[in-house]
Simulated assay, not measured.
Amino acid sequence: MGFSSPENGGHALDLSTKDTCGLPVFGVAVRYPAGHIVPLHKHAYGHLIYANHGLLRVEAESGQWLVPPTAAVWLRSGVAHRLVAPVALQACGLFVREDVCPRLPERDCVVHVSGLLRELIMALAQADHTTIPSKRIHLLGELLVEELHTQPALPLHLPWPTGDAGNPVQHVCQALLDNPGDSATAVEWADRLAMGDKTFHRRFLQSTGMTFGKWRQQLRLMSSLTLLMQGIPITQVALASGYDSHSAYSTAFSKQFGRPPSVFAANL
């Protein structure tokens, strides 16, 4: 990830050995406790972030991503980002040289992690870079790039409002992020911000690229993944996420992720 585990003081990892290894792809593996935050940072490499256990939140100017063990976040080189571990997790970060990046997604996104891609990520993240890289490590990196290129993007992105810190839409989004179950309507938010209903809807769409209702639903569903991974009963997850019932939540979850929350929870 570019940062050490909290047990080592939370300082930046020394990537100097890896930087000079000559590999097109190299990686690190890190453990984070629940609630740990890796501060804003960036890399001169394309960056693939994967949590093989737990759930990781990746925050950047362009948006936020929640990453379950079946997915990974791809970030272009130079993209500043922060990492938040809502639950204890093991994470792997792979770094891809810029000359290789053109073969990978042009936008920051979440991609599906196939069984093969997972094994490649784990092998590269745990590889010993203190010795001269072997032909096997080079080939694993090449295969990872090919496999990553074929993976579909997933709907786990939450666009963050554009503009400066004074944008009132950022205040609304941060409040909802802190409390996804907040039931305040768009009209109520407009009243709080002393603006008209139509103005609020227009500014929200301009700032995020999504309507208020769609954005809030996306937030609620993404946030609910954390609760599911903690083993909380689905009915409680539904209510905490702002849904009136188990069925309403399950319907929305299935439409968004292609499977009901019971199936998602059973495969954790």
Rank of each mutant, 00 (worst) to 15 (best):
M1P: 12
M1E: 02
K18P: 00
D19M: 02
D19I: 02
V25L: 10
V30M: 10
P33E: 08
P33S: 06
P39T: 13
H41T: 12
K42R: 11
K42V: 08
H47E: 14
A51N: 13
V58Y: 03
V58M: 03
E59Y: 02
S62F: 01
G63I: 05
Q64A: 14
L66P: 01
P68M: 03
P69D: 10
A71M: 05
L75K: 08
R76L: 14
S77G: 15
G78D: 07
V79F: 07
V84L: 09
P86N: 05
A91H: 09
A91C: 14
L94M: 11
P102G: 04
L104W: 10
P105C: 01
R107C: 07
V110E: 10
V111D: 01
E119S: 13
I121K: 04
M122L: 15
T130Y: 02
I137G: 00
L144V: 00
T150C: 11
P155E: 12
L156M: 15
L158A: 12
T162V: 10
D164H: 05
H171Q: 08
C173W: 08
T185W: 07
E188N: 03
E188W: 04
D191V: 10
L193P: 06
A194T: 15
A194N: 14
F200P: 03
H201V: 03
H201N: 11
R202F: 09
R203L: 15
R203N: 12
Q206T: 12
T208R: 07
T211A: 15
K214L: 15
W215N: 05
Q218P: 00
S224H: 04
L225P: 02
T226I: 14
L227T: 05
Q230W: 00
T235H: 06
T235D: 13
Q236I: 11
S245K: 06
A248P: 00
S250T: 07
S250N: 12
T251I: 06
S254W: 01
S262R: 10
A265Y: 02
